[in-house]
């Protein structure tokens, strides 16, 4: 769809150019056919039009052969491209208005405008490093939270695979004791990766599983513990309190843990992701985002307002269904893909 869109945009651009072209041709025909007084008037009008166009054109654009005038139509198109990334209407409007101010009356290439916006977003999302903040000594505990169906369990498997491949000893905590067969799902993954897993009885207190996992990690010298939690909506107060408790008991078994609290966001999510980031940050103290399912046609632009409002960095992106389809976040390629 994204490719289709850009093709369409190109076609439209070509269309407007064509129209302009035929207009000139028609004008030329008129000139040849009419002659006399009408011809003079037409010539005069054309001359004025030309002057008018020159006057309306910024000096910097005079020598550009192609391109489009920054007018309502172009701004509308720009707004559509911005909104489609899910960055939200307000930020999109802000950017559009600024472009309107900076480029009013100029002739530009859409790609140039998008390029400058892209650079800006890249700068904004730039971060020191994408990876995990490892504990100075002892096991690092990573707690993974998110709403139902955002891709927590799959992301955990991918993280575990990654750590395992880095030569670290990994233990998983199957803290999703609510959803049917979530424990089984994670156990299957643990088996495939070849790491250990701590499970509780079905519908056991998830905090007890988290505690046992952290304890096992500390006692048996694991490098990293990744703890799953049940999906919950940020509006479910009682479940959010449960999350707070999970966080607390982890801290009791290992000083300073959890070292990372990763919020898994579905890249197809819209503006509700902002509410998710707020809700989970308040309760669980998120330290970063895993942007899952970014391999579809969704752009995940909502992380832009989230970064703006809460300063939450994206640490990893999920790019497929395979165990190795997890990459460290890269502002460069992310912003590159936004308007593709």
């Amino acid at each position: 769809m994204a490719f289709w869109r850009s093709d369409k945009a190109k076609r439209e651009e070509a269309g407007t150019n064509e129209k302009a072209g035929t207009g000139e041709k028609a004008g030329a025909g008129e000139k040849a056919g009419a002659g006399g007084e009408a011809g003079f008037l037409a010539r005069l009008r054309r001359g004025l039009e030309k002057t008018n166009r020159v006057l309306n054109t910024d000096v910097r654009d005079l020598f550009k052969g192609e391109g489009r005038l920054v007018d309502e139509e172009l701004l509308g198109e720009l707004f559509s491209r911005l909104v489609t990334t899910d960055m939200g209407a307000a930020p999109a409007r802000r950017i559009r208005d600024r472009i309107a101010k900076d480029y009013r009356g100029r002739v530009v290439q859409m790609e140039d405008v998008l390029g400058s916006i892209r650079d800006e977003i890249r700068e904004m999302l730039r971060q020191d490093s994408g990876g995990v903040a490892w504990a100075a000594e002892g096991p690092t505990v990573v707690l993974v939270v998110g709403v139902n169906g955002s891709g927590k369990t799959t992301s955990i498997a991918k993280l575990a695979r990654r750590f395992h491949a880095q030569g670290k000893r990994v233990v998983l905590g199957a803290g999703d004791t609510f959803r049917a067969a979530a424990v089984e799902q994670l156990t299957v993954w643990a088996g495939r990766i070849g790491c250990e897993i701590v499970t509780g009885k079905p519908e056991a207190d998830p905090a007890s599983v988290a505690f046992a996992t952290a304890k096992k990690a500390a006692e048996e010298g694991f490098d990293v513990a990744v703890i799953d939690t049940a999906g919950r909506l940020q509006t479910q107060t009682h479940l959010m309190q449960q999350l707070e408790k999970i966080r607390r008991v982890i801290g009791k078994s290992i000083e300073g843990a959890p070292h990372e609290v990763l919020l898994v966001l579905d890249a197809t999510a819209g503006q509700n992701a902002i509410s998710q980031a707020r809700g989970f940050s308040e309760v669980a103290g998120c330290t970063g985002i895993v942007l899952a399912k970014l391999d579809g046609s969704a752009k995940g632009g909502v992380v832009i307002p989230i970064r703006e409002q809460f300063g939450l960095p994206v640490k990893f992106v999920g790019l497929g269904e395979g165990l190795d389809d997890l990459a460290e976040f890269d502002a460069e390629s992310f912003s590159e893909a936004l308007f593709r």
């Binding site: 769809m1 909104v83 489609t84 990334t85 899910d86 709403v147 169906g149 579905d266 197809t268 999510a269 819209g270 503006q271 509700n272 992701a273 579809g296 046609s297 969704a298 752009k299 909502v302």
Partner: peptide, 15 residues
């Protein structure tokens, strides 16, 4: 369809 879906809903539903 997930009720939290954003702009991508037109694409996926279309597909």
């Amino acid at each position: 369809v997930d009720g939290m879906t954003g702009q991508d809903a037109v694409n996926s539903a279309g597909a």
